[in-house]
Structures are given as C-alpha cells and as structure tokens.
C-alpha cells in the first residue's frame, strides 16, 4: 500500500482531476503533475501490449486466410505468398453472399426484438412490485440453465408441426426474447432512481411512456451492450440453425462454414477466409454501439 491508503494526504492532486472525473475510479498514484503524462503513457502502452496479445489469434486468422492451401501451416504471421484466392474460392463456390444475408436478417431482427422485449421485462422486474415477481424472474432466469443441446429436439418437433423449418422465423424463434438480456437490463434498471419514475407518474405519463422516455434512456450503455451481444450471439449461432435449416440457400454463415470441415480434415484456408469475412459486420456493429456506451456518461444530471 502506498499513498492511496492515506486519504487526506494529497487533496490538491485529487482536486486537479476534476476535469476528468472518470479518473477518480483509478488506483494510480498521482503525486505530482509530471507523473501524470508518464502514468498515462504507461497506461496506453500496457493496454496496447495486452491488446496485441488479445488480437494475436485474430491476426493469425486473417494472415492464414491470405495463404495458399499449401502454406496454411507455415506458421509465419506474414503470408509467404499473399493471395486472395481463398476469398475468391469461398465467394465463387458457395452462396456465401446469401448466407451472409441470411445471417444479417436473422441477427438484426432478433436484436431488435430482444432489445425491446428484454428492456421492457427487465424494467418491469426491476421497478414494479407485484405478486409473483421473484418467481417470474427466477423462472425466466432458469431458462438459461438448460443447455441448447437438450432443447433442439423439442424445438425441431415444434418447427415441423408448425411448418417453420427452413424459414427465417424457424431460425429465429428460440432467440427472440432472451433471459440473459432480461437479467442484464433488470440489473441496470435497478440503478434508476425511483423518484424519477414517480415524478413522471404524477405528471400523468403512461406506464409505457415512462419506460420508453424516462427509464430506457438512462440505461443506454447496458442496452448498447445487449445489442452487441445479441447480434453477435445470433450471428454465431450454430447448433439450432444447423438443425432447422434444410436447403443450402437458407444456411447461416456458421452453418455454411461448418461445411468446409469433413471427415478427412478441415479446409482451414477456406474456413479462415470465410471466418474473416464473417467478422466484418460484427466489428461494425461493435464500433457503432460502443459509442453509445460512452454516451451513457451524459446522464450525470440524475440526482439520487
């Protein structure tokens, strides 16, 4: 323990941080002004090094996608003979664009549905008191505890009986509301002050409007996170789409990519190219939504 355990030793230094209040959450010791740029530089450096470690497998994936099939196991990060041949092969020999479109449709619609229903349910569970609240919450939460592998057969029987196989709805229906998101939103709605909601009620807002106009904007960071993960989860979903999809045209990307593997091994050069292309939309979604996570700071007006 150094000076951070001496609360009143450096009041001035702490005061200096007012301009960037978020730093208050840090444990970095800041004794003198000259240390701050150094500390900051170190922080950037350490996070950069860590970050490079994090992206290493991704970089390897992209590098491999640019290698010829016979070079795929040359373990250099720089392709000896860079080629776009794998990409061309994937695009020419499979309905990749169609798979991409299917995944996009499924992921976007599911994300919109989850964002709406999960925030609504999360809000109700966090802010309403009514008989059965705890039971309903646990009931919903308990659905997370059953592995998908055990549910696919009943779902498939259901899909056959209702004629949902080989359709977008068939792929999407198990995921249009998620207990995971309900739990997330509930946790964040719990932090919304009750005073605000009560004040809005007195002002004559309808219950739905209070949710939509008052409470929801306050949990934007969580909502953004939920959108990212729902999109990603559905973009990558494999077990269920594989079973419910019959035709090659209705495959989603992960299902399509799985067909590059077979009994005699996997065509890793094609898998890497397809996987690299599959990553692009997710990065875009992430870049867009992670800004919303920053904007959450705008809610400093909330009074406790």
């Amino acid at each position: 323990m150094t000076s951070e355990s001496l609360p009143h030793a450096q009041p001035d230094a702490v005061m200096d941080q007012k301009g960037t209040t978020r730093q208050a959450a840090s444990t970095v010791v800041q004794k003198k002004d000259w240390r701050r740029p150094v500390a900051r530089f170190l922080l950037y450096l350490i996070l950069l090094i860590g970050g490079l470690g994090m992206v290493f497998p991704f970089v390897w994936m992209v590098a491999s996608s640019l290698k010829d099939a016979s070079d795929i196991y040359s373990l250099s990060l720089i392709p000896p003979d860079p080629t776009l041949g794998n990409y061309r092969e994937v695009l020419n020999e499979t309905p990749f664009a169609r798979w991409f479109f299917n995944s996009l449709v499924v992921a976007l619609i599911t994300t919109a549905s989850v964002a709406f229903f999960d925030s609504l349910v999360g809000y109700v569970l966090a802010k309403f008191r009514f008989p059965g609240r705890t039971v309903i919450f646990l009931l919903m939460l308990s659905t997370l505890m059953v592995p998908t592998e055990m549910l696919v057969i009943p779902w498939f029987v259901m899909s056959i009986n209702l004629g949902w196989t080989d359709s977008y709805w068939g792929i999407m229906f198990p995921g249009v509301i998620s207990a995971f998101g309900i739990f997330l939103m509930r946790q964040f709605f719990m932090g919304v002050p009750n005073d605000l909601i009560d004040a809005a009620r007195i002002d004559g807002f309808s219950e739905f409007r209070i949710f939509w106009k008052i409470a929801l904007p306050l949990v934007k960071p969580a909502l953004a996170a939920l959108c990212i993960f729902t999109f990603l989860g559905n973009w990558n979903a494999y077990i269920w789409p594989l079973i419910v999809v019959r035709s090659e045209e209705m495959r989603t990307l992960p299902v399509g990519i799985a067909f590059f593997s077979s009994e005699a091994g996997s065509a890793f050069h094609l898998i890497m190219a397809a996987a690299a292309m599959a990553t692009i939309p997710v990065i875009i979604v992430f870049v867009i939504f992670q800004r919303q996570i920053i904007k959450g700071i705008a809610l400093t007006g909330v009074k406790g």
Binding site: L48, G50, M61, N236, S261, S266, M272, T279, F286, V287
Partner: peptide, 13 residues
C-alpha cells in the same frame, strides 16, 4: 475493439 476482438473471432479459428 482490440479487447473485444477475441469475443468475435470465429470459434473454429
């Protein structure tokens, strides 16, 4: 993005 990338890298890869 750096820290998020592992989460979006394909499981096969």
């Amino acid at each position: 993005v750096l820290y998020f990338i592992p989460y979006i890298t394909s499981l096969v890869a």
